[in-house]
């Protein structure tokens, strides 16, 4: 059984998910998510060491497409959707840190 969900865990998860939570929200989510995780103790408690996990309901394999060029979207149309664009590119505030 995992230890109960703590406020710190919720704060850490919020950071990972890029969400800002107020103190009240932190309290609320800690309690509500705690309830859901408590409910999940029914499956946590099962011994399923020998069970193979299922990620897909049906076992399709090798679904591929041919290496054939298809039309792209018009750049102006795409950039028109963007909150901010400049010089044919999507514009964002400065990036801290580097790509992985």
């Amino acid at each position: 059984m995992s230890s109960p969900l703590r406020r710190d865990d919720v704060a850490k998860v919020a950071k990972l998910a890029r969400l800002t939570l107020s103190d009240a929200e932190l309290d609320m989510f800690t309690e509500q998510l705690g309830h859901v995780l408590e409910h999940a103790e029914d499956i946590e408690a099962l011994d399923l060491a020998d069970v193979i996990p299922t990620a897909h309901p049906f076992g399709l394999v090798n679904v591929v497409r041919g290496d054939i060029v298809r039309p792209c979207l018009a750049r102006d149309e795409v950039l028109a959707m963007a909150p901010d664009a400049e010089d044919g590119r999507f514009a964002v505030p400065r990036i801290m840190g580097e790509a992985r």
Partner: peptide
């Protein structure tokens, strides 16, 4: 939040991994 937690390091096996087995 729930999903991020279920996938995060240290909890994956207990939650998400277990759910896939269920």
């Amino acid at each position: 939040m729930l999903g991020t937690y279920a996938l995060s390091a240290g909890y994956y096996d207990a939650y998400y991994g277990q759910a896939l087995k269920v």
